[in-house]
């Protein structure tokens, strides 16, 4: 899609939303004006959902908050990398060579690529989902709190479409956040440690190219692991008119579920908790790849997306928008 194509659609539908986020003052007069305008050509009709998605994306990624979150995520691999470098500078191995510490950390000194896996294993339990929870929780509730939700809905986009655009934006953020960690780790790893042939968990060596390919798959698996939480956050976000409440509730839910997942007495419910298979991404490093937990993870995330996505839809389409 070229810029010229989107310009008119942005003028009719996209613009109000883009400016809405900038502030209610600017959006106030523009909203009704856009609503009063007649629907555009069939082409514009087709492009409108993308226009809405696009403006959501731009709004989200232009926020300082989002950029700060990504920066924090990118700092984690730097910290881990430097810590490992310092600890092993005297020729010793990490964690006394007993395999203690975060997953894959013993391998980092041999191959910088493993810093990617270590960083993902470190950030996945909490950092990554927390940022996703913040973005997802803020998505609808933040608009409601800012008083901009009704202007968004005044545009002839429809609530379902708005919800889809919001969720798609969150999904893009999941991928962006994972890639931020992975790329930062890759850069730090390549800088501080040797890279080259990758030894898989089974002890089989593969070429660096295949290692990179597996890394990409792992990043995608991690991003996909966050989709369930994103849907949960979206649902929570439709329940309240306060962005902060929604973010806190989502992150609180995350922590609660993580704790429940560690209590052995509750093992019966563990397979149904969304973080349960999160660390399955490591199974991509086996030879042959052990797919069962990966597929279970994807299935579970899809289930959460279906349940909480539809719940968010039910809630938002029934909601009285007062703010």
């Amino acid at each position: 899609m070229s810029r010229a194509d989107t310009a008119p659609s942005a003028a009719s539908a996209g613009k109000p939303e883009a400016s809405v986020a900038a502030g209610p003052v600017a959006a106030g007069p523009a909203g009704p004006a856009a609503a009063a305008r007649a629907p555009g050509s069939p082409l514009r009709e087709l492009l409108r959902p993308l226009g809405l998605f696009r403006s959501e994306l731009v709004t989200t990624f232009r926020r300082w908050r989002t950029l700060a979150l990504l920066l924090v995520l990118m700092a984690v691999p730097v910290l881990v990398g430097i810590a490992v470098k310092i600890e092993t500078s005297d020729g010793g191995s990490v964690g006394g060579g007993e395999g203690d510490g975060p997953a894959f950390i013993a391998q980092v000194t041999n191959n910088g690529l493993f810093l990617v896996f270590t960083s993902l294993a470190v950030t996945l339990p909490f950092f990554l989902p927390m940022t996703v929870g913040m973005i997802a929780g803020d998505s609808i509730a933040g608009e409601a709190a800012g008083g901009t939700l009704r202007y968004l809905l005044v545009a002839p986009a429809g609530r379902t479409r708005l919800l889809l655009a919001k969720y798609a934006t969150t999904v893009v953020f999941c991928v962006a956040a994972t890639l931020a960690v992975a790329l930062s780790a890759l850069a730090v790893g390549a800088l501080l440690f040797p890279v080259g042939e990758v030894t898989l968990l089974s002890g089989t060596p593969v070429s660096f190219g295949e290692g990179l390919l597996r890394t990409l798959l792992i990043a995608l698996a991690v991003a996909a692991s966050l989709l369930g939480l994103a849907a949960l956050g979206l649902f929570v976000s439709t329940m309240t008119n306060s962005g902060v409440t929604a973010m806190a509730a989502t992150v609180g839910l995350l922590i609660t579920v993580q704790i429940v997942d560690t209590i052995p007495q509750l093992h019966a419910v563990h397979p149904y908790l969304f973080p349960h298979y999160w660390l399955s991404f490591g199974d991509l490093l086996r030879d042959p790849v052990y797919w069962d937990p990966l597929l279970k993870n994807l299935g579970l995330q899809a289930l959460y997306v279906a349940v909480f996505g539809s719940a968010a839809w039910a809630r938002l389409t029934n909601k009285d928008i007062t703010a």
Binding site: G101, P102, A103, I105, A121, V122, Q258, T262, P275, L279
Partner: peptide
């Protein structure tokens, strides 16, 4: 047991 979330690989 798989998936102690804070446990990582330990």
């Amino acid at each position: 047991d798989r998936g102690g979330p804070f446990g990582g690989g330990d």
